[in-house]
Each structure stands twice: as C-alpha cells, then as structure tokens.
Amino acid sequence: MLKKEVARGPGARVVIMDSITKVTADDAGSVVVSASHGGASSGEFALEVPLKAAFFNDAGVGKDQAGIAALAMLQKRGVAAGTVSHTSARIGESQDMWDEGVISHLNEGARALGLSVGEPLRQALERLARG
C-alpha cells in the first residue's frame, strides 16, 4: 500500500497514501492526500492526527452526502479538507489522485488556504507547499 511524500516547502509537507488508515503521528502538520472515500469513518481516522489538511475521493458523494461527510467533521476541528471527483481519480489509488484528481468539494478551511473547486489537486497542493 502506497504512502510517500510528494511535495515539501515552507507552506506544507504533502503526503499521499492509499488509505487514511495509514496516517500516523509522523504525519502531524502535513497535508494528507488519502485515496479513501470522504465519509465519516475516514474523517474519524483523519482526526486522530493533527493535520494541516486532508483530501479524499468524493466516491460519487452518495446518499445524504455520505461520501463527503468528513469535510464538515474536519472543519469543526479547524482542519482544511476537500475531495477530488470520483470521475477524475480512482478510489484507493493515491498516486492516481495526485496525478489526475480534480478538486470537487472543499470546506471553508480549504477555501481559506486559496484552493478552488475545479482545480487540479496536484497543482493546488504544490502551490500550497511553496507557500
């Protein structure tokens, strides 16, 4: 299962991982791109470590917006979060999310970092890392 640093700069360290279950204390303060869905269970894992931001796959959003529930959970704790569209990147493959993902949903914290819906995830997070 893939987990690796893909960008680092004065603004952020960016780590991609195929599953949010792989987040550890070593990732504290980082921007994590997880290929997990953005549901409540993923949000719970993301809240176990104090992250700068977390990104997930929107998994088609789903009934009652279940596929993006983590965004509100993280916002309540002051963590920026977003998703990429399930039509732009494969669920479960963080390298594909990094290479091909297009931002589909953002919480207010992520918008405050200057990120925009419709922007390629990699482009947005490389800019964030540069500060």
Rank of each mutant, 00 (worst) to 15 (best):
A53M: 09
E48W: 04
A59F: 12
D64S: 13
E119S: 01
D18K: 11
M73L: 12
E119Y: 07
D64Y: 12
D64T: 01
E119N: 01
S88C: 06
E100S: 15
K76H: 10
L121W: 02
V117L: 03
Q65I: 05
E5F: 08
V15K: 07
A46V: 10
L74P: 09
G114L: 05
K52L: 15
F56R: 00
E93K: 15
R90S: 14
P50F: 00
T87W: 14
L113M: 15
K76L: 12
G11K: 03
H105Y: 13
E108C: 10
G109L: 07
S19E: 09
R8E: 11
M17K: 11
T24V: 04
N57D: 14
A69H: 06
V61T: 15
K63P: 09
A46K: 03
K4C: 05
A35V: 00
R122E: 11
L74D: 13
R13D: 03
G67H: 08
G39E: 01
S19W: 01
S30Q: 00
L113I: 07
L125P: 03
G11D: 05
G114M: 10
A40R: 14
V61P: 10
V23F: 03
S116F: 05
G29R: 06
L2T: 15
A72D: 02
E119P: 10
A54Y: 10
S36F: 04
R90C: 14
E48N: 14
A54H: 08
D27V: 02
S30H: 02
A112S: 12
A80M: 01
V33Y: 06
S94R: 09
G39C: 00
G82P: 03
R90F: 06
A72I: 08
A72P: 06
F56K: 09
K3T: 15
A35T: 12
S19Y: 05
G67P: 02
I103K: 04
G92M: 04
A129F: 08
D26P: 07
P10Q: 03
V117K: 09
I68M: 03
H37A: 12
R130K: 15
E119Q: 13
F55L: 00
L106E: 02
S41C: 07
A89L: 06
V61M: 13
R127N: 10
A40Q: 14
A25Y: 06
V33S: 13
A35G: 14
A53Y: 11
A110G: 11
E126G: 01
G114A: 07
F56M: 07
A80W: 01
K63F: 14
T24E: 14
I91Y: 00
D18E: 06
M17D: 11
V15I: 13
A110Y: 00
E48F: 06
V102L: 14
L121V: 09
D99G: 11
A40L: 13
T24C: 03
W98I: 09
E100A: 10
L106Q: 03
A54N: 04
P50Q: 01
A72Q: 07
F55M: 07
G92C: 00
N57K: 02
